[in-house]
Every structure is written in C-alpha cells, then in structure tokens.
Design a protein around this nucleic acid. Structure first.
Length: 785
DNA sequence: GAGCACTGC
C-alpha cells in the first residue's frame, strides 16, 4: 500500500517529526499562546469591554495551549480568552466578562456510553462527589458566576467541553438561592443527555432521582413535588409552552448546547425573549439599573444560554447585548495532520492511514469518521482482510462498526474493553461526534464527509428530501478531532488538505433554515403568534414559511385569513407532524381510528419497520408477502404490527426477537411504535375521542383518512402507465421498488415521502380512488370562496 | 428495479 502523506511531506509514520514541522510553521502563534497561558489556575473577572471569542474563533480543543490545533492564520489561533486579546478585537463593543479558569479534566463524562440507558452516575459516596465537584474547572469561578447571574436577567455562558457547566450551574443556582422557590429547567437537545445528567446531579445532591432533581423526556418522566432542578429535552419545554405560555412554573430556564441550534432550541430562545418582557416588566436590564427590573414582577424569570463554541456574541446580541461569561474547559492536546494532497477515495485513504497508524504508532484505539453505513461496511471488510495478513508479531485488530441503525447488541461492542495485544478500530458516523463518547480513543481519522438531508421545498408545500454526502464544517472537524483528546493527548489525521479545511463553512446552517416549519408554525399559531412575525436569531426563508402555511391551510389547520381553526388546535395536541395528526382527526369521522393510529405510530417512529439488507432483498420480499395488503404499504403496516402483537402475546422475549429477525422486521421500531400508540390513544382519551373504532374490512376508510393528511403527497398515474405526476406539484415520480405497490397499475396514490436518488421515488405508498381527489378539490374551492 | 446521517414531541 502506498503511504498517505500528511502535512508538509511528512507521513503519519513519524508523528514527532510531523508535529515539529507543524509547530515550526505555526511558531508565531504558538509562542504567543504559551506566553498567554496562565501559569496557575486563576480567576480573572474583568468588567471592562472585552471581546470574548471574536467572530470566527474556533473552540479550543487544545485547552493547554500547546502545539496542535492552531493554524498559521491568526484568525484561527486558539488561545485562552484573556485581557490580552489580539489587536483585531480591540475596541470591539461587547459587554464581555471573562472568567478564566484553568482546571483539571474530570473522570466524569457526559453522555458517556449510555446506550443501554444506564446512569453515568457512579456509586461513589456523596463526600467524594463533593470533592470532585470542587475540582471542576467551573468551580473556581463559582462566586463570580453567581454574582453575574444574580444581577442580570439573561446570561450567556460560554463553557468548553469538560468545564462542568451543565452539571454545576443548576446546582449553584439552587444553592445560592437565585432560583427562589421556582423550578430550574435545563434543556438538552438529546434524551440520553437529559436523563443521564439528572442522575448525576441527583447523586451529587445526595438525593434520589425524582426528589430534588428530576427529568422529563418523551415517554419517561421522573419528577416529584420537591423537584427543583429539572433536566428535559428542548422539545418537552416547547410542548409545555402550549399549556403554560409564560412558563410560570420555572424561575430559571437554562438552555444548554445552544450552539447546536436545533429548531426547538431556536424556538425557545425566541419565545424566552418575549416571556422575559412579560414576566420581568418589559425591559431588559442593561448594565445600569441591574437587578431593579426584577422588582416589576412577582415572578421574574432568569435565562441562561449555554454554548460550547462560537456564536456567543450572536446570543448576546439577540438578548440586547447581555453579559457573556467564559469558562475554560480542559482537554488534552490533540495534534492534527492534514494530507499533503486531496484524496479522491476517502475510504481507501482511511484504510491506508489506519494501517500506517497501526504499524508505526503506540497502542491506542482508533476512531474513523465516515458518512454512512455503506462506507462503514465496506471499510470494515477491507480492514479485516488486511489485518489477517499482518505479521504475527503485530497487534491484532478488532473492528467495531457504529451507526444509529445498528442493532443495540452490536452497538454495545464498542464499550467492551479491548482484548490484550489488540487495537480497537471504531468505524462510525456522526453518532460518535456528539451523541456518544467512546472511551480509549487516541487516534481519530476524519474523512471530512457526512450525510446531510436536504429539503427541497416547493411553493405548493410539496417537496422532497435528498440525502447527500457533503463536506463537514469546521466546527464539526474540531469536534471530531477533540474525540482523540478525552483521556490523554491524541492525534487526528484529516484526509483532506489544510486548504480544504480553511474552505469549510464555520458551522452548519441552523436547523430553522433547513427544515420543514409546518409543525413549528402550527404550535406558534396555538400561542396566537405568527412564525412570519417572530424575532428569530436567524430568520427562516420566506419560501419555507409560505410552504409551511400552505401546508397548514391544506390541512384545514388555519383558515384563509391564517387564523388557527379548531381542527388546527386539535392537531397541535398530538405529538405528531400536522399531516399525520390531521389523518387521525379524519379517522374519527371515518370510524377507523384504531388502524390509523397504528399506522401513524409506525410512520413517526425513528427507524423503518422493514429492514432493507441489499444481499437478502429477495428473501425479505418473499417473507413480506404474507403481510401484504392490496391497498398498499399503509395497511401492510397494520398487518405486520398485528402479527407481531399476536406473537408477542404468547412468545418469550427471545422468541419474539427471533421472529422479527426472520420476518426482516425491526423490533426496535415496533416497540417504539407501540409506545407512541399508547401516547396517541391517551391523547385521544383526553380529547374525548374514541380510538377503538375500527375499519374492519373496509380499508377505504383508512386510505381516505390518510389521504386527508397526505393531500399534498398525492399523485396521478400518467399515460405511460409507470410514472406519476404530483397533484399539487410539478414533479414526476415513481413508486419505490421496495413498495408493495411497485409494478401495480393504480390510477392515483398517496405517499409518505419522496426520496431522490437516481429517480424521485415515492415511499410508503397506498392506492386511492380518483374520486377522493375530486372531493378534496371541491372542498378547497369552497374555502377559498 | 432499490442504496437512510442524526435528533425531538
């Protein structure tokens, strides 16, 4: 195998040499860095004007400030924030306050290997935990932090990985009395984070989970009357807004991981701004008059925005230039190498780089970031093939694929300890970037690619998604590199040039600018707010808003003057996308709620119901025939779900699992769907809807109900007898070959989604009579009139 | 005649 060349002609073979080379090139920056690093832990409070993290600054993965992540260009030099900012930030107008803390990395890790839902809280005694708390980097800035938060209604806290902000800040708020008698809500983008953090903080407080500290995520809540700190998913708090628009239960809302900019986080940030105005007396407290505004309301709210990287100033600007606090974290240094030339075949480059590391570098596990399952499986095969040919005196290689769709048992393999004289090689998607932390990683190989779902909106509200392999962003590249420095110093080999890195976007577009806004628009309508009028950090595209409103109008969720309808309010009550919620409401009229809820439960599950394994497609299709329903894929889902329940009623857990495997059914999807179904049935009961009504053998009732929600996803057969044309759009589409209706000649269809590969394919397809289309077009004309 | 990253109620 020819070697891959990294850096300026140096190969990965000689790390020290390559490292020296890199240091030399960046020497002006690194000498400055070393000078600026405080020699001992210190807390620097500075009320003067100081730009904290000027625009474009990257996160400091290399917390110690030694050689590593810095590039030649000054604007990407990583450093400790301090008084001694480079010239380009002088005079930068911001109310920044720097809390500069050095501290030791802790053994405790967030989200650490929590696939099995076990708590990351140790069994250590309370005293040990208290000692650990004091050792966290943030602990040294505790008093300064408390003072700042006490005196301001909004605080932006920029804390690096390992600073301890997420576990400690809520406890400081509680212990200092700032939170008053209200609840402290701490939002997280991911469920596992919310549950494992709550467990950890409960242990630190010496209470059981559900006492002082609780959590709330979908399907799972541990809370009690004494709860003062509540970790929750951002989606849960958005949902609470619908019943309590001012969030009166909470005295503090901490929005964590705000830099991820999920749609729900952005919604919260926007709504919190208006809630602050209402609860805190209309005006934000600026530097002067701090604390006074709180007196204008009996129940003031404090907001803390926590971010790991970048964007801190953007958050601050959004909240009338509120204070930015900065807490340093502690990470071990990671040396980064770029390839000397760009690589055409990243899978091949990853293969060769892995063996360069394996042959020439000391023990330590390797994590390779790849875009998807297909590349992972192909590289996995290649690595195992070559590993078998290694000389016997070399370490063995153990490969571990890792992606979300992988069965949990195989996912767990990455957390098993590596056998002696063996190097573990983990081949992972983005899942290893934020969702899970894998212990023992010393080397990261970064292909620089990921998969991205692009929503191609259409002015009619129809549109389709395409999943494309694209370049990652700089912040993503930094995050990936950081995965090598969790436990000790590490190395990151980027399979792209330094120029390619420089050309990457700083961070990805916020979700609000990429995703369908139909659901968000409906929720806001429930609060009597219009998505088009709201003050967002990043405003969504006009086309995207129009597409969302048009969809809502087609679903009869809003009327022609854009006011929410009764039906719209009912739809918002369901934890479903509005189109599926609309199908459920329609099923009430058509007396088939039982079947429709079964279907939408599966459709809104995370993964697909049927496995699609390319090598076993024939066998899968054969087995699937017995679930097949002539009307199409939706009733086929009902058949499969019912068959599973028959099996589940009598068989053991192991037998159920085996049955699913033989049917090429994803049991994880079935179990999730059943949970969702229970939740939907409960929602129906609250609304006085009888969910037990069944279509019996009249499946047209079911397709008619689904059609109501999928109006915009309807298409008519063209004269060629093969392709379909969208009724409310211009695209010409085909039925996906995996559908039960592939090769069937039906006059009109509805579909769940369109996927764009070499054709635009409709997936999740059912046949409908053309008469349905005629009926709806009359209804639509009547609304317009 | 097929090729799906991740997350949320």
């Amino acid at each position: 195998m020819p070697a891959i060349h990294f850096g300026d002609g140096s190969t990965a073979k000689n790390v020290e040499q390559a490292g020296q080379q890199h240091r030399r090139l960046s020497s002006p920056a690194s000498s400055k860095l070393q000078r600026m690093s405080p020699a001992s832990p210190s807390v620097t409070m500075n009320g003067k004007i100081n730009g904290v993290h000027p625009n474009g600054r990257q996160p400091a993965v290399n917390g110690s400030g030694k050689a590593g992540l810095q590039s030649r260009k000054r604007k990407h030099v990583y450093m400790d924030a301090s008084d001694d900012e480079p010239a380009d930030t002088k005079g930068h107008k911001a109310n920044g306050v720097t809390i500069n803390v050095n501290g030791r990395d802790q053994q405790f890790r967030r989200n650490s290997g929590n696939l099995n839902g076990t708590s990351s809280a140790g069994s250590s005694k309370s005293r040990e935990l208290q000692e650990q708390r004091k050792q966290l980097p943030i602990a040294q800035g505790r008093e300064a932090l408390i003072e700042q938060i006490a005196n301001h209604h909004v605080t932006v806290l920029l804390g690096e990985t390992g600073s301890g902000k997420t576990t400690q800040v809520p406890q400081y708020l509680l212990e200092s009395g700032i939170a008053g008698s209200g609840i402290i809500a701490v939002t997280q983008p991911r469920r596992v984070a919310a549950t494992s953090l709550a467990a950890r903080v409960a242990a630190e407080q010496g209470t059981t989970l559900g006492g002082l500290v609780g959590y709330s995520v979908r399907f799972d809540e541990v809370a009690g009357p004494d709860m003062r700190i509540k970790y929750m998913t951002d989606g849960m708090l958005v949902r609470e807004l619908l019943s309590d628009p001012l969030l009166t239960r909470y005295s503090v809302v901490v929005v964590d991981e705000a830099h991820e900019r999920t749609l729900r986080t952005d919604l919260l940030i926007t709504k919190l701004k208006t809630i602050l105005k209402k609860r805190n007396g209309g005006i934000f407290p600026e530097g002067k008059g701090k604390g006074k505004a709180a007196a204008t309301s009996g129940n003031p709210l404090k907001v803390i925005i926590m971010s790991a990287t970048l964007d801190a100033e953007k958050f601050s600007k959004f909240y009338n230039n509120c204070k930015i606090l900065y807490v340093k974290g502690r990470q071990h240094s990671v040396k980064i190498y770029h390839t000397a030339e760009s690589q055409v075949d990243y899978v091949d480059a990853a293969l060769r780089t892995f063996f360069q590391i394996h042959v020439d570098h000391p023990p330590g596990d390797v994590l390779i970031f790849l875009p998807g399952q297909e590349d992972i499986e192909s590289l996995d095969k290649s690595i195992r093939l070559y590993a078998n040919r290694l000389p016997v005196d070399k370490m063995a290689v153990m490969t571990c694929p890792m992606f979300a769709a992988l069965p949990p048992a195989q996912q767990a393999k990455i957390f098993q300890s590596t056998p002696t004289n063996t190097r573990k090689c983990i081949l992972a998607t983005n899942i290893a970037e934020t969702s899970i932390t894998i212990p023992g990683i010393k080397y990261v190989i970064d292909t620089g690619k990921h998969k991205e779902k692009l929503h191609l909106a259409h002015d009619t509200g129809s549109g389709f998604d395409a999943l494309l392999t694209r370049d990652i962003t700089k912040s993503s590249a930094m995050q990936r590199a950081g995965r090598a420095g969790r436990e000790d110093k590490g190395y990151c080999f980027r399979l792209y040039t330094e120029e390619a890195f420089e050309a990457m976007a700083v961070s990805s577009e916020p979700e609000i600018r990429r995703t369908s806004l139909t659901s968000a628009a409906l929720q806001l309508k429930c609060l009597d707010e219009d998505i088009e009028d709201l003050d967002f950090m990043d405003r969504p595209d006009v086309e995207s808003i129009m597409s969302a409103l048009k969809s809502l109008w087609f679903l009869n969720a809003i009327d022609k003057s854009r006011r929410i309808t009764d039906a719209g309010r009912s739809m918002a009550a369901f934890p479903l996308e509005p189109n599926l919620a609309s199908a459920v409401l329609e099923s009430v009229k058509n007396t088939c709620t039982l079947e429709v809820i079964d279907i939408v439960s599966v459709l809104s599950s995370t993964s697909k119901l049927f496995f699609d394994i390319s090598d076993e497609r024939e066998a899968a299709a054969e087995v699937r025939r017995k679930f097949r329903h002539r009307s199409g894929d939706h009733m086929t889902i009902v058949n499969a779900l019912r068959s599973y329940q028959d099996v589940a009623a009598t068989e053991s857990k192991a037998a159920r699992k085996e049955w699913c495997r033989k049917q090429y059914l994803n049991e994880r999807t079935l179990l999730e769907a059943i949970k969702i179904r229970d939740q939907l049935r409960a929602t129906c009961e609250k609304m006085g809807i009888d969910w037990r009504t069944s279509a019996q053998d009249d499946e047209k009732l079911v397709t008619k109900s689904l059609f109501r929600g999928l109006v915009l996803h309807s298409a008519l057969l063209q004269p060629d007898g093969i392709t379909f044309k969208q009724v409310y759009g211009r695209s010409v589409i085909k039925i996906h070959p995996g559908s039960t209706l592939a090769d069937q000649k039906v006059p009109a269809i509805i579909y769940d989604e369109l996927v764009y590969t070499n054709h635009i394919y409709a997936r999740g397809v059912s046949a409908i009579p053309k008469a349905f289309l005629a009926e709806i077009s009359i209804q639509i004309k009547n609304w317009v009139a």
